[in-house]
Amino acid sequence: MGYSTVRAELTTKDVLNSTLQSKKVVHVLTHGAAGVTSCSDGLLYATNIGSVPSLKFAFFETCHSALSPSGGKSTVKTIKDNGASASLGFQGTISASSSSNGCHYYVVCFYGNAMEGKTVYISAVNALNELYAYSGGYYGCNSYMVYGTSTTIN
């Protein structure tokens, strides 16, 4: 996709926040809940996510990353409102039984579509059907929520 990649594991809240503020495309794989992302040193609340004007796209591969907490905004809505061109998350729980199936396969399909120049929305819907054709189920990925639908990231 023309990007150089950096991979970080056991990411802290500060590292995740600074990554969102400095990178173009960020993919986050961890546990989550409404308005909350799990980091190695605790929970990153959506309210603590800073301004991200240079961020083109963030994909939060966590449960409930698109679910709003009571009286607040979801993680991916916050990302979009804080300046990102687009973001993608899930309102419900997502699951997998290995490192390559379920929601992880959805992710592979999503970026496959995105690399072909499709928008994040079209990549999201196509990825869901590709997951279905592969596995016969959705693994919770049918709760996808895309902000900035017409954005392309290739």
């Binding site: 794989l29 961890t30 546990h31 989550g32 591969e61 966590t62 449960c63 729980t93 997502i94 699951s95 997998a96 039984s97 199936n101 379920g102 929601c103 189920g137 693994y139 919770g140």
Partner: peptide, 21 residues
């Protein structure tokens, strides 16, 4: 944790146990 599991319908063999993130 939420589980999505598959069990073969005649033998009862567990085919998959997927757990939520």
């Amino acid at each position: 944790t939420q589980f999505i599991c598959r069990v073969e319908a005649t033998t009862g063999t567990v085919l998959e146990i997927a757990r939520s993130l």
